[in-house]
Amino acid sequence: MEMNAPYTSFVAVGDSFTEGMSDLLPDGSYRGWADLLAARLAAREPGFRYANLAVRGKLIGQIAEEQAPAAAAMGADVVTLVGGLNDALRPKVDMGRVRGHLEAAVELLAPSCGRLVLMRSPGRHGPVMERFRPRMEELFGILEELSARHGALLVDLYGAPALGDPRLWDADRLHLTAEGHRRVAEAVWQALGLPAEEDWTRSLPAAPAPGWAVRRTEDLRFARRHLLPWIGRRLTGRSSGDGRPPKRPELLPYATPPLL
């Protein structure tokens, strides 16, 4: 792809990763990599338009049925689709159904936009990651097939060891920090053929590992504040995104907020 290619519109589709959790702003809203990318694209193109249809907790079936048709109708220059990980992290999952929903979404989106971007999501280093690694890698294999078949870009965040560093993940161990989101925005920016501003794959400086007591305290806090509520939602069939609308449901001109 040409460097300095003009991108005049961008639609983001997905779940909490694309909504921007846990890149928290002072007003209590979330920013995230998609907003950061939109701000950078808007700085290059007067009249740039942006929509973000992502909603936390959504499964790939919901993304394919609710978000993909709306995104396809917008005819944007760039569409990003990130989904399926919420399915893979559930106690039981039919990966065949995940594949079917991903195929349907990609087949709808690829011909409707100038450039479709898929991602191999990052994974935090730790025991939870190891438990779900086979499912994640099966999901990523599906995405590789679909990107090759439909000419989509595939951004490999999973293949960057630096993004697995726990220091780039929030206390819930599911969502990236502001620095993590900033690196993802840079990764997508470069994948779109735009001039690199930094090496988003670089490792953080070495730091002493926390002691046993600190780790146990953090584990207990994580279990109480994040893990148990997450398990409770899975057992009751609820989602953190139930009833929540997208933060930018329409493809409208995007003025860079001062905080960006």
Rank of each mutant, 00 (worst) to 15 (best):
D199M: 07
V82N: 12
R149L: 14
D15S: 14
H125A: 15
Y254N: 04
G211T: 08
L260W: 01
T177M: 04
P249V: 08
S147E: 02
R135S: 06
F17G: 01
T236D: 07
L204Y: 09
A255L: 15
R40Y: 11
L235W: 12
G114L: 02
L204F: 09
P253L: 11
E19D: 09
R97T: 07
R120L: 07
A12S: 14
M1F: 06
V78R: 01
M74Q: 05
L220W: 14
G20P: 02
P245S: 13
T236E: 00
G123L: 06
A54L: 00
P134G: 00
P208Q: 04
F222I: 08
T80P: 03
G14I: 01
Q67C: 04
L139A: 03
A162N: 11
S16I: 00
N86D: 13
E19I: 13
G159W: 07
D15G: 06
P208K: 05
L25Y: 01
V55Q: 02
L139C: 00
P69S: 12
E66Y: 00
G75A: 12
R248S: 12
A38D: 01
P166W: 07
R131P: 04
E197K: 15
A207H: 09
R216A: 13
Q67A: 01
L251W: 11
P127A: 10
G61K: 03
R244D: 14
G241M: 05
A178T: 13
R49E: 06
G114W: 04
K58H: 13
P249H: 02
E137C: 12
R99I: 04
L192F: 01
K92T: 08
A104C: 05
A209Y: 01
T18E: 13
S29L: 12
R238N: 10
A104F: 05
N52C: 05
H226D: 03
T236M: 10
G241H: 08
F140G: 04
G61V: 00
H150N: 13
L251E: 04
A73N: 12
R99D: 11
M3L: 14
C113N: 02
H101Y: 13
A196P: 05
S9N: 09
K247C: 11
L260G: 06
M119A: 14
H175T: 02
W230S: 09
P195T: 10
E144W: 07
E19Y: 15
P208E: 07
P111R: 13
D219F: 15
E144H: 12
G57D: 04
G180L: 06
A12G: 10
A160C: 12
A191C: 06
T217D: 13
A64I: 06
P210R: 00
A12N: 09
L251A: 03
R167I: 05
L108K: 15
P111N: 14
R244V: 15
D165I: 11
A152D: 02
A185M: 05
E45A: 14
L227A: 13
H175C: 05
A70D: 15
V79W: 09
E218F: 08
S203N: 09
R202G: 07
L227W: 08
P258H: 06
K92Y: 02
H226I: 00
E45V: 14
R183I: 08
P208D: 10
A12F: 04
R225A: 15
H226V: 02
L139H: 03
A178Q: 15
A206G: 12
L259Q: 15
